[in-house]
Design a protein around this nucleic acid. Sequence first.
RNA 1: GCGGGCGUGGCGGAAUUGGUAGACGCGCCGGAUUUAGGAUCCGGUGGGCACUGCUCGUGGAGGUUCAAGUCCUCUCGCCCGCACCA
Length: 850
Amino acid sequence: MTAGIPNSSTSTAPDDEDAGRLPAYVPADIEPRWRAAWETANVSGSELADGEEGTYVLEMLPYPSGTLHMGHVKNYTMGDVITHFRRRNGATVLHPMGYDSFGLPAENAAIKTGGDPLEVTEGNIKGIEQEFDHMGWSIDWTRTLATHRPDYYRWTQWLFLRFFEKGLAYRKDAPVNWCPKDQTVLANEQVVDGACERCGTIVEKRSLNQWYFRITDYAQQLLDDMDLLEQWPERVLTMQRNWIGRSEGAHVSFHQRDLDQAIEVFTTRPDTLHGATFFVLAPEHPLVGALTRGTGNEQVVSDYVEAAAKLSNIDRSNAERDKTGVDTGRTITNPATGEEIPVWVADYVLPDYGAGALMAVPAHDERDFAFAKTFGLPITRVVASAPGAEDELPYTSKEGVLVDSGDATGQSTTDGARAIVDRFEDAEFTVNYRLRDWLLSRQRYWGTPIPIIHCDECGVVPVPDDALPVLLPQVDDYQPKGQSPLAAAEDWVKVRCPSCSSWAKRETDTMDTFVDSSWYFLRYADSQNGHAPFDREVVDRWLPVDQYIGGVEHAVLHLLYARFFTKVLYDLEMVGFREPFASLFTQGMIYKDGAKMSKSKGNVVPPLPTVEQYGADALRLYVLFLGPPDQDAEWQDNGIGGTRRFLDRLWRYVHGVARLEAAGDSIVGSPSLDELRADATAHELAAAAHEATKKVTADIGPRMHFNTAIAALMEATNTGTKLLGSRADDAPAIVDVSHRYLAQTIVGLVQPFAPHIASELWSVLGGDAVWAQPWPTFHEAYVQRATITLAVQVNGKLRGQVEVAADIDEAGALEAARANEHVAALLEGTQSVKDIYVPGRLVNLVVRPA
RNA sequence: GCGGGCGUGGCGGAAUUGGUAGACGCGCCGGAUUUAGGAUCCGGUGGGCACUGCUCGUGGAGGUUCAAGUCCUCUCGCCCGCACCA
């Protein structure tokens, strides 16, 4: 025995020691013992040899609110299986874990209990560490991080300053999403169905001066580099593509006489310019006031603008709603026709898409059509499916020819668009994106302080690198009140300007927590670095992440932000790769009683009590056995009993095998094929071992179908148990050797899923350190039997089975099939049409009545 | 409306390439053990029937093929994402 590996006999209760009785499987006895052994053996260490490229397996880090739930258990167990599997196939694997520990839940919990967010967070982390400990996941804890600790957020601030220097972090006045409950602004990505992603409150619009990341600069790269993401689920790529919302079209400037000013619109249909019969501004458009002045419509328009501002996002974006709007009393010149067309203000025009204004072509756009009908505005057809066709309006198809469109008349819509854009100086083709810049500032306490100083003389001044971290100050009141609680820390706010040394004020907003989690995967690779967030050389050896696993709910949040950060860091030459996650797996959720597990529904199954009752190994197996890992699954209380019974059966089988004297008392090599061919039972056992190896290897590796891998292990255990039960007292030695071989193969294969029991049973079989054993290899020769069973079909229907020699030829197989009594009877009085022979599988005799 | 995905026993799900549909587990039924219950172990378990066998059967309707859960056409239902995006 090597140091640190406990003796398995300690699990044997005294009254089990008499001969003939097996020690009982008591997970609580063996599991802590083996976890201690792994720690001593440094199983989870991840040190690279000189010149070695590492393998990086990563799961999305938890938010430390309360305890872990079954979704985490599934997520981290999947990552753990892959970690062990790759490790045993020779890779050095980085498998780290940390805490995404800034954010609203801890802060709100602290406000509720009158506590301190820091204490609440650190307390939660302590509790979760307990849970991590009990699950036996192989995690390199020497690399752990928590985003709320200064040794981490110092570098979040440092990275912010690099973005600031590049003009990628900036401040602007803009309409923003405001959550009235959490009293803070939100990013577009954090508004779901018009409501705050965190608390579900309907968000309001406010015009505020806020900090943004210029993610829109990277819109096209974020789309283009999806080519590198072959190992990502199509669903996630589609969601990101929709979110970025690229559309090709043209900018066209319309001239307004009274203001003598051009107003720009974006259109995807420049070919329909001649059909623009009116013009619409968003209520928030900056020219609304100036344009209306002196028309007599001032009051009506300003009332409308005010009403629009009060509408919730949900009401505003409801397409079913009747169109509303008001006439400004002004006109604008259609550059194609030279006609003066009326300018309206309407809330179906969104302020933050395109130019916040549009040319309305009611004949060929449903929304413009509805608006024209409501307000009696003219409708002019400029596209027809064929020359002269009187299509029903609105005719919105892009297929067709232009009519009544000046020189472009008769051209296809595509050619016409080009001709029209070419003709007018004030029109040019352009690409527009739906993606907006990422609003990163928050008016809340529990977040990374933005390292900026506001000076009356110098303006916005970055905190110098050597003054980082800007520590989060202590405050007495965390209550959100529309401005950051940090503003109350007057001593902290008041600071000398780094540039001119006069008194200045610190920025009091904090960063969105998604900033923290946009680079954590880089820090793990170089977590102890004290002079930089990470070293490029080190990071390039581990990243991109080989396998990332997490929930699909982050498709347009974390996963988009992390891609953006990586691209910026690539451009800053801080990393040598453009995509952070080479392969992404999105796991399904675990439901119970048809609903998501939640405290309010009372259907939560907490991990720790389940471990106490069934053992960590049974729970690990069960969450993966539930179904394909990318699908949602229903937790069934009885189900985990099934995986526990499997472990009990495996335990009995391995202990039974360990007592077979003829099998020896240590790990054996593969029995020779010659020996196996002499004994059918021995051959069955060795074949079962190899079949399981083939299935489990393929299921963990390329397919990630852990449920069927576990099923294969159950099957192999059932085969072994059955053959051990029917073993004759005078069985030849090769049978016992084969039992030992099957037992050690199953234990070796089950190790990534159930590492505790595997460690124990491996030592019962006389081996050391199952976690360090090479992964079993599959050999086809072992599963090939002397005889095989062929299915016999007559006219495609199964009519019998025949046992034939494995190396039989087609003629022999057909003969054997016809010789089958039942088949022969069916063939009587028929004439052969065709014989089909699929080697190793079946014979199909196609006949017709004679 | 646009995009992505899914429909197989009482339930969760299997079936890498078209080749014996229902692996594995839950549940259920029977047996052993037990004073009993529970637990455990062993066996059975898609439906129907004139039950050594036949027949129906992968949401539905067609088609291709010797052979279809798998390929093609149409269709029904469910889930998820985006959506007044010009």
